[in-house]
Design a protein around this nucleic acid. Structure first.
Lengths: 345, 345
DNA sequence: TGTTAGCACTCGATGTGATTGAGTGCTAAC
DNA sequence: GTTAGCACTCAATCACATCGAGTGCTAACA
């Protein structure tokens, strides 16, 4: 599995070139690189070796070579040069993140759009998983004679209009009762007993139809278990049309279809293990549609808790170095911002 | 401007045919239609007339004709057959809308996805304009030692975490003071006096840094003036790739770009006057990108108030009859559902 | 022994010219 | 006023030749 230094250099040169041009790379193109000082004939021999070893592929006999999935993998693991992001670019990025946006979903969407602007590939971001949040407060607000809005505050705010007849005073009682039993609790700590407690507190104060408390509790429970789906946002989907690998319109359409199907997309993106920046190259992706794409993901965290993911989807010949660097710095910036959300808990 | 009955029939036949095939329509194809009982030569003469009148266009001398924008316009205004939606389709649609979703944004997104499924064109929906809502309730929830969540309930719920040090008791006082002065008010009714009132109520109870009340008020004001942008959601964007008019990948990319640029898209969609279902054909659109598309929109209402729009974007040769019928029925269903949101106000 | 120049060969891409056929406008007959 | 017939147009298609980038292999070279 070990490659001679020269083979490594050649493989790297081939991939670098191919990333730029999307055209099969011939021996002459490599020979022009003065750093190698080697003739095209020699390179041909080496390339034949590299092909035999599985790192390169020849689309047809009289064409140059393109990297195989294994070639890219080797490149990403061992060959890739660290991408040096310009200092001004970094400054600008940091400045961009200093905007005063405070809504969580806006922050992560913004991060996604920055990632796509930086890399010019399609970007997906997922909202944080909402497990394990703690009920902070519950409230009822009368909307009309027979409608009441239920508000549950966890790390987020969830609300729903329900068909319950409650006066303002009753709303107050109801909310007090709920808060007394529920505030500060997590989903695990809500039991049948809790519910009985609430019923007790309400007795004589608020008269409710049978099912209402159940409905309310279900909503509260959903809110706190994060039953609500994690969202996923896509930026710069149209970029796939820019790359020659999607000149086949049918393929492009299927890809867009995947990007619009949030569930499928979530399955793809979230299936990835955590850790730092991480690439899935070509067939390493489960999803059929991504077999000739690469997906680079990174986790961001929400303070001490696990956050969501940022992912970049592009052709296999993407600029890995740049994407890795971009995601790294962006996730860092998000972490910084999101620390506020959970600080001092 | 008046067309003979025969010309009308021919124009209709040409457009109907072209909608189906996207290929220039020749005289022979029309002559085959037994309803006309007319030879291709006669049709050629009539078509030449229709071209002179501006309703048809000949891409090149030896090709058939395609409709001009004016042709489509005439078709939509006067020729188009009413599309009869099957009874089962209607039933199914109504059933689909009986799902128990209650979050406003989910409802309208769902409506958008139904419209796109029904028509197989790209659909955009905008959330209702948020003007004129009334403050129902304001609340403060302590998040950590120096962070507090501010919640404003109008027809929606808006929240923001702010850097304010407040104990639980102080939160209560603060909220009471705000509610006393603000609950039930609209943006117009918030004045400098209101603010002074609140400061009065707080005096001695809650000590706040200078700027905090201003920040809080700004957030409340934004919430109630609907300063927050109206959202716009896109479904089935990939459908544009299915139509031969977008076989040019570059064009398709630009179109997708438009669909991703929410601001530009909003400008396009919202610029349309209200009323029932309404089409903008080709050059009738301001937006350069839509000059060879049609945009069909309809308003939905939020009870007595103005709601948002649903729009279908497709090729000029779209199935207008079906799109009109679909949007009509969908906006009706949304109206029904959304009536709950404002009923009995 | 490793490297390189040279050469025959391969094969997709590109260009060219002929052919096809759908469709037209016009004319003359009905 | 309608229609059959005909000459004409022109994009699309196809076969065919050409081109050229790139290869593998061989033989000469350091």
């Amino acid at each position: 599995m070990d490659l001679s230094d020269r083979k490594r250099k050649i493989l790297q040169a081939v991939i670098d070139e191919y990333i730029g041009t999307a055209e099969p790379v011939g021996s002459r193109a490599i020979a022009k690189n003065p750093k190698l000082g080697i003739s095209s004939a020699t390179i041909r021999n080496e390339m034949a070796d590299l092909e035999e070893m599985g790192y390169l592929i020849q689309p047809h006999t009289s064409a140059g070579r393109i990297p195989s999935d294994e070639g890219y993998r080797f490149y990403v693991n061992s060959l890739m040069q660290r991408y040096q992001m310009g200092m001004e670019a970094i400054m600008e990025l940091q400045k961009a993140f200093q905007m005063r946006i405070t809504r969580l979903d806006q922050i992560i969407r913004y991060a996604g759009s920055i990632a796509s602007a930086l890399t010019d590939y399609t970007t997906v971001v997922t909202s944080p998983e909402r497990k394990l949040s703690k009920i902070r407060k519950i409230d009822f607000v009368p909307i009309s004679a027979d409608k009441t809005m239920l508000i549950v505050v966890t790390d987020y705010v969830k609300s729903q209009v329900m068909s319950i007849k409650l006066s303002e005073a009753e709303c107050g009682y109801f909310a007090d009762a709920m808060n007394k039993s529920l505030a500060g609790r997590t989903a695990d700590e809500i039991t049948a007993e809790t519910m009985a407690d609430i019923e007790d507190s309400l007795r004589g104060k608020v008269r409710l139809p049978e099912s209402v408390l159940t409905d309310v509790m279900r909503f509260v429970f959903d809110a706190v278990t994060g039953d609500e789906e994690t969202e996923i946002y896509v930026s710069n989907a149209q970029s796939i049309l820019k790359y020659p690998e999607y000149r086949d319109v049918k393929k492009a359409g299927e890809m867009l279809s995947l990007l619009e199907n949030k569930d499928r997309l979530k399955r793809v993106v979230l299936s990835d293990a955590g850790g730092g920046v991480h690439a899935r190259i070509g067939a390493e992706n489960e999803e059929e549609m991504l077999k000739d794409c690469s997906l680079v993901t990174v986790d961001y965290s929400l303070g001490p808790r696990r956050g969501g993911k940022i992912g970049v989807i592009g052709p296999k010949r993407m600029n890995y170095a740049k994407v890795f660097a971009s995601l790294d710095i962006i996730s860092g910036e998000i972490d910084k911002i999101l620390r506020y959300y959970t600080e001092n808990e």
